[in-house]
């Protein structure tokens, strides 16, 4: 599902002493089927931006198009429900929102809210639970007996059961241990690939943004500072640093190697394996040169 922002401005607490310009004339495009990461310092407008994509916030000015739904400023909110059905939102710590007595009931809650019949909701819930890897033997247990990582999977299954075309993930790996983090990221890569879902991920982890996304949006002061593929964005170390962001750790490591080798031309590498190749390349290059 293509998502487009045209001159979108959002002001919190308009006409109050706490008035704050959170989005400032933002225009951007998120292509259908892409994996887009949104990065930026706390308070840069990342969350405000993504909350517009499923109608949690409405623009103060401008227009948002998501598939065939158009949201304009100063409009009545009749199309918001349609939008929310198409764009799933996984909040930070989504496991805090589990409430039903069984896992299956909890996952059914979402689709039933969108008017899906009992039997259809159950069917979708089962599908979603399979997708996120919760075994059928668990489905009739209480979600509260699960581990943190599993609870998060159940919460995500609840969002998927509405069959959204796009999914927004707000810091989806926060609080998980390294293994849980990796499993969670693999799950999103899988959803993106297998279901061709448009994925929008808000993250503080530069390496995750670099490895998983096709497009990175860098937010600063309510505006996109850069939009582009990670191979481009993460070469702009100085610009990123100026807005309080670091490069992925692989790039920081390469910088240290390059400083020793007195080389300047940076090569993007985000996985450990790619980085090892670049290190070898740098070492050989210097050797040949001498």
């Amino acid at each position: 599902m293509d998502i487009t922002f045209e001159h979108v401005t959002h002001i919190y607490g308009q006409k109050t002493p706490f008035e704050k310009l959170a989005l400032d004339d933002v225009s951007l495009h998120i292509p259908s089927g892409s994996f887009t990461s949104v990065i930026g310092h706390t308070g840069s407008g990342k969350s405000t931006l993504v909350q517009h994509i499923n109608g949690l916030l409405k623009p103060s000015k401008g227009k948002i198009t998501a598939g065939d739904v158009v949201i304009r400023a100063n409009e009545k909110k009749q199309s918001l429900k349609k939008l929310r059905e198409k764009v799933g939102f996984v909040f930070q710590y989504p496991e805090h929102q589990l409430f039903e007595e069984s896992i299956i009931k909890d996952v059914c809650f979402g689709p039933m809210n969108f008017g899906v019949s009992d039997s259809e909701a159950t069917k979708r819930a089962e599908e979603s639970l399979n997708l996120v890897g919760i075994p059928a033997s668990y489905w009739h247990r209480s979600p509260f007996d699960l581990s943190g990582g599993q609870m998060r999977r159940v919460a995500i299954a609840g969002v998927l059961a509405a069959r959204p075309q796009a999914i927004i993930l707000d810091e989806p790996t926060a609080g998980l241990d390294p293994k849980g983090r990796q499993e969670m990221l693999d799950l999103f890569a899988e959803l993106h690939k297998r279901l061709s879902m448009t994925v929008i991920m808000v993250t503080h982890n530069m390496s995750d943004a670099a490895i998983y996304s096709d497009q990175v949006i860098v937010m600063n002061d309510g505006k996109p500072l850069m939009i582009g593929p990670p191979e481009h964005v993460f070469l702009q170390t100085e610009q990123l640093r100026r807005v309080g962001l670091e490069s992925p750790e692989t790039m920081l490591f390469l910088d240290k190697v390059m400083a020793k080798a007195r080389k300047k031309e940076r090569i993007p590498a985000f996985t450990i394996d790619q980085t090892a190749d670049v290190v070898i390349q740098i070492l050989n290059g210097v050797k040949n040169h001498v």
Binding site: E249, I272, D273, T275, A276, D277, I280
Partner: peptide
Amino acid sequence: VGLDLPFAIKMRQALQKK
């Protein structure tokens, strides 16, 4: 036991493998 390794160690292992 489900722990990650520090960056320098992962990097070193990848280089050793190559």
